[in-house]
Nucleic acid binder design. Structure first.
Lengths: 225, 225
DNA sequence: TCGTGTTCGTTAGAAGTTCTAACTCACACG
DNA sequence: CGTGTGAGTTAGAACTTCTAACGAACACGA
């Protein structure tokens, strides 16, 4: 089972402290949001004093980047597991996995999909994980039957126009071999789910009496119709 | 034209300084985001020194609240003007007005619809303006022909389930007299437009090569279909 | 087993932030 | 023409991130 750890004791200790710092950071983010994250407070709560943490993280941004990376990885794991467990690739399952994941820790969702930190630019490996998530959604959408010219009459002109456009610019998602309708559907999936989720998590539905879960459900149904 | 200003000179001066502070605040937000807003920096740029601004704003939160209020008011004015100018109430016109407004100053859009400040709670008058915006959208959606049981076959079950749900909980939007299908459509409008807009403004489409404007257009077309 | 050098954690401190307290000073009003 | 209100000042407390310099502990090679 446990392979011999080739890391030196110092490296193991270092990794453990880094993990502990991140744990406290998540705790702090969950209660006060990402903008209120304080390295000093984390250090104090760990029994260390201020600048000690700078041995483990170059600066606040690096810690946040690490948290974002972990968040993306967590979400990627969840959707991958969902795709693997369920009956192959199912967009609805993807949607529910996403919603459950988001509601489990709203701040974590908002950290990666919410308002970005002003000067922040995601490193390449993070965007790679993000597009892996997108690829999973794309797989699911490609598996859906393409009932393109079936619906009402003809699809609205802007919709087909966008599909032609996206056909010419399919540089994203590693040139996933899916028909343009699936590409468009995946994008719509992403933006619509995010629309409901982000407004719900940001509290913009409080005051309105309806249940966001039902709205989410209705959107998923409309998307997989 | 100009009515005699009944305010005292002190009040007028006070209002002018407050306006100037907000102007500098918007400038700062536009370049560095809301989280980087610094009262100190604003004071310095105005030739004042630090605590002077506390005569005008009790604290940073009050300034931000004021900015949010102004942002909401600006958006409400725009959509109201659009509804008045256009051929009555048109959801597509609403959508384009919203997008234009958002792209004109992304940070302003994200300030009101993005990740909320942790401890912040919007005062009543702000939520009132927000629901005025929603009412405008609702008017536009109610004006749309309700082709409910016409589409494909029957609407997906969760969709009608949500409409029944929303019929029972129509406490929001000041009990707007619209059929549940219009309520649902307005909600979908809001969440879908926000989904595309917020991801675009947050930069989540960079790297993918497609034009967000066309995606937005396709969503609007799908919504008004 | 015993240096030796890396790495950790410390304190000190600089530069920034919000915000309070106390003090002037000028202006508008009675 | 006094008087009081309100504006702006400086001082300073309590924070923040982050750098610099120091001591001490620890793992590793000879």
């Amino acid at each position: 089972m446990a392979e011999t750890d080739t890391r030196t004791p110092r490296e193991r200790y270092r990794a453990q402290v880094r993990a502990e710092v991140k744990e406290h950071a998540w705790e702090q983010i969950a209660t006060a949001g990402a903008s209120a994250l304080s390295l000093n407070a984390i250090a104090k709560r760990m029994g260390l004093s201020g600048p000690a943490l700078y041995r483990y993280f170059a600066n606040r941004d690096e810690l946040i980047t690490e948290l974002i990376r972990d968040a993306y990885r967590s979400l990627a794991d969840v959707v991958r597991a969902t795709a693997a467990a369920g009956s192959g690739a199912d967009p609805a399952a993807f949607a529910h996995a996403l919603r459950d994941w988001a509601l489990a820790d709203p701040h974590r969702y908002l950290l990666i999909y919410g308002t970005p930190v002003p000067g922040y630019h995601a490193p390449d490996d993070v965007t790679a994980i993000a597009s892996e998530i997108m690829a999973t959604l794309l797989d699911a959408c490609a598996a859906l039957p393409d009932d393109r010219p079936a619906p009402p009459a003809a699809p609205a002109a802007p919709v087909t126009r966008f599909e032609e456009h996206i056909e010419r610019h399919r540089g994203w998602a590693a040139d996933h071999p899916a028909p343009p309708a699936a590409l468009r559907r995946a994008l719509a999936f992403w933006t619509r789910l995010h629309g409901v989720l982000s407004l719900e998590l940001a509290g913009h539905f409080t005051g309105m009496r309806f249940d966001p879960a039902l709205l989410f459900e209705a959107e998923v149904a409309d998307l997989t119709r």
